[in-house]
Design a binder for these strands. Structure first.
Length: 424
RNA sequence: GGAGAGAUGACCGAGAGGUUGAAGGUGGUGGUCUCGAAAACCACUGUGCAAGAAAUUGCACCGAGGGUUCGAAUCCCUCUCUCUCCGCCA
């Protein structure tokens, strides 16, 4: 959520910044509602001030033995007027809040301006695309042949875009989760969280999934809960409506959760295999930091996620998303893209973002500065560390052998009971 | 699911229709004392919104939302959450 004062004081600048994004956003509506609200507020507050004053006077007058019945009658009228006007203010408040919540974050000035993902910029590359002395297969073929993935039965028991991991495939999935969590908690400084896999509406609003993207989420109507689309939601909301002490910062969390997404609008894309499922596993990294450190922390968070691929020996590259491809809540995002032989290109496997105070403002996460005792919004960041399903797919494809078996990278062997390779 | 109890400031905890934004304490900040520190003592110490150049002023906020009243932290209703007991259950 943007600061309404910022919008009010620099409307043209805000429009220009938001204009760098793709999509249309109605900032004039926000300005209009804000104006309307403040006009009403001045009036109703004047009336309330009078009401409060008279309410103080009445007991005094009674003590002095004066008759208050006329005054009480007058106040009864005023009270009714106030009630009507309060309701009006409340209605406008709601509209205003809803309108602001639908305005995306302002991109950081360093983010490259561009229209779509085609204008994203490659920052660095690690390794080279895997070369094969034979025709490499896609993971959905390899995995089914090896009996470690089963998509047909997943479609039967649930529907399209679900997967089953079986035998060594299930072990591999589990190993990857543990490998990633151990890396982040033991070799890096993250504290592990095992959060609920369902969250309420306030949490979804706090991180920016709602109100604008409700159709992307799976919901539990009977409780107005949502299946988590990412661990970012429960973990960032851990500190919703809290005031943190400065010495508590920075806070680093990592969490494994399954993620549930409708994938609305992606019909027909990536329909095979593990790339785009309604349910997938992910290990997430989340940071709460002081504003002055957030961009340094974004660099570290990204390299912490990259470390997973380095240790697994899977080639990848890091790109900066241009303004047109930036997510709704993000001020700056680096995507880590892994080499996927079946696609013959790099595929997104992690998205590392600095939200600055956008989420903190929505979720009301503040901290008290030691030097002046003032409250300030924290900056929040997160990134996948990594998407487990896609990592699994990338590993299978990049480590495939001519005979259809899959070599296990050294770093993962301790998590696979020392298994060297998966074969028939 | 049934029966009870509760939810108050950063934290603990009073308050039971009328100068209560809310006693007292803890914590925090500043000061006195000290070579320094601790202890003790003194003072200060909520958030949001609006108006104003500013000092400042107004309004709101005692789990959330409604209601009663001239006036609600205090009374009534609904909901959420926490705790105790019973039942059911991985």
């Amino acid at each position: 959520m943007l600061d309404i004062k910022k919008i009010r004081n620099n409307p043209d600048w805000v429009k220009e910044q938001i204009g760098k994004r793709s999509g249309e956003y109605d900032i004039d509506k926000v300005l209009e509602l804000d104006e309307k609200r403040r006009n009403l507020l001045v009036q109703v507050e004047e009336m309330k001030a009078k009401q409060n004053q008279v309410s103080k006077d009445i007991p005094k007058m009674k003590k002095e033995g004066k008759d208050t019945s006329d005054l009480v009658l007058e106040m009864r009228n005023l009270s009714d007027k106030i009630k009507d006007m309060d309701a009006e203010v409340k209605e406008i408040d709601k509209e205003l809040r809803d309108a602001i919540l639908r305005i995306p974050n302002i991109p950081n000035e360093k983010v490259i301006v561009g229209k779509s993902d085609e204008e994203n910029v490659e920052l660095r590359k690690w390794g080279e695309p895997t070369s094969f002395s034979f025709e490499p297969k896609a993971h959905w073929d390899l995995g089914v042949d090896l009996g470690i993935f089963d998509f047909e039965r997943a479609a039967k028991i649930t529907g399209a875009r679900f997967s089953i991991f079986k035998n060594k495939g299930a072990l591999l999935e589990r190993a990857l989760i543990n490998f990633m969590l151990d890396l982040h908690t033991i070799d890096q400084d993250y504290v592990e969280i095992a959060p609920p896999f369902m969250v309420n509406r306030d949490s979804m609003t706090g991180t920016g999934q709602l109100p604008k993207f409700e159709e992307d989420a799976f919901s539990i109507p009977s409780k107005d809960y949502f299946l988590v689309p990412t661990a970012e939601v429960p973990v960032t909301n851990l500190h919703r409506d809290e005031i943190l002490e400065e010495e508590m910062l920075p806070i680093f969390y990592t969490a494994y959760t399954p993620c549930f997404r409708q994938e609305a609008g992606s019909a027909g894309r990536d329909t095979r295999g593990l790339i785009r499922n309604h349910q997938f596993d992910k290990v997430e990294l989340v940071k709460f930091v002081k504003p002055e450190n957030s961009y340094d922390e974004l660099e570290k968070l990204t390299s912490d996620a990259e470390e997973v691929l380095k240790r697994l020996g899977i080639p990848y590259r890091v790109v900066m998303l241009c303004t047109g491809d930036l997510g709704f809540s993000s001020a700056m995002t680096y995507d880590i893209e892994v080499w996927m032989p079946s696609y013959n290109r790099y595929v997104e496997i992690s998205s590392c973002s600095n939200f600055e105070d956008f989420q903190a403002r929505r979720a009301n996460i503040r901290y008290r500065r030691k030097d002046n005792g003032k409250l300030e919004y924290v900056h929040t960041l997160n990134g996948s560390g990594l998407a487990v399903g896609r990592t699994c797919a990338a590993l299978v494809e990049n480590y495939q052998q001519e005979d259809g078996s899959i070599l296990i990278p050294d770093a993962l062997k301790p998590y696979m009971k020392g298994l060297e390779k998966i074969s028939k």
